[in-house]
Computed example of a mutant assay.
Amino acid sequence: MAALTGSADGRDGAIRVRVGSAGQVETLELDDRVHELSGPELAREILAVIRGAQSVLSAEVADQVQATVGADSEAGRAVIDSFETRFPAPDAR
């Protein structure tokens, strides 16, 4: 699971983020279209894309747990719950 990542983009690809296996930001790419945003709007957009990438990571972890130890095992459920708690789906916030 240490190799798992999550990626997301926003503003039609103007903002791209990849997070590592612990949810940390590994890459942040911004193209020139972000200049159309005010500072506060850009900050909100970047944070939303980060949360999206973390949610993708959480889903990847759940898939990996299911494929290895099983989502119904005690260890599997603990791992999945940990990621779902830290990185909930954006619509679950």
Rank of each mutant, 00 (worst) to 15 (best):
G13P: 08
A14N: 01
R16C: 10
R16N: 12
V17C: 06
R18I: 13
R18T: 15
R18E: 14
R18D: 11
R18N: 11
R18C: 08
V19H: 02
G20N: 02
G20P: 05
S21G: 08
A22N: 13
A22Q: 15
A22E: 15
A22T: 11
G23P: 13
G23Y: 12
G23M: 12
G23Q: 11
Q24M: 07
Q24V: 02
V25A: 01
E26M: 14
E26G: 13
E26A: 11
T27L: 09
T27K: 10
L28A: 05
L28K: 07
L28R: 04
L28T: 05
E29L: 12
E29A: 13
L30F: 12
L30C: 07
L30T: 09
D31Y: 09
D31S: 06
D31Q: 07
D31G: 05
D31F: 08
D31N: 13
D32F: 13
D32R: 13
D32C: 02
R33Y: 10
R33M: 06
R33L: 08
V34G: 01
E36W: 15
L37N: 03
G39N: 10
G39D: 14
G39M: 12
G39I: 14
P40L: 10
P40A: 11
P40G: 08
P40I: 13
E41D: 14
E41I: 03
E41L: 09
E41G: 03
L42E: 07
A43T: 12
E45P: 02
I46Q: 02
L47H: 10
L47M: 06
V49N: 06
I50A: 04
I50C: 06
R51Q: 15
R51T: 10
G52R: 04
G52K: 00
G52L: 00
A53C: 03
Q54A: 07
Q54Y: 08
S55P: 14
S55L: 09
S55T: 09
S55Y: 09
L57H: 04
S58E: 02
A59E: 14
E60C: 00
E60W: 00
E60V: 00
V61T: 03
V61D: 02
V61P: 06
A62N: 04
A62G: 09
A62C: 03
D63A: 15
D63I: 04
V65A: 04
V65T: 03
V65E: 03
V65M: 04
Q66H: 14
A67W: 06
A67Y: 07
T68K: 12
T68D: 13
V69S: 05
A71L: 01
A71Y: 00
A71S: 07
D72A: 09
D72P: 02
S73C: 00
A75R: 12
A75G: 07
R77L: 01
R77Y: 01
A78V: 01
V79K: 06
V79C: 07
I80L: 05
I80Y: 10
I80N: 05
D81Y: 14
D81R: 10
S82C: 12
F83Y: 15
E84L: 01
E84P: 01
T85P: 12
R86S: 10
F87E: 03
P88Y: 06
A89R: 14
D91I: 06
D91S: 14
D91C: 11
D91A: 15
D91Q: 13
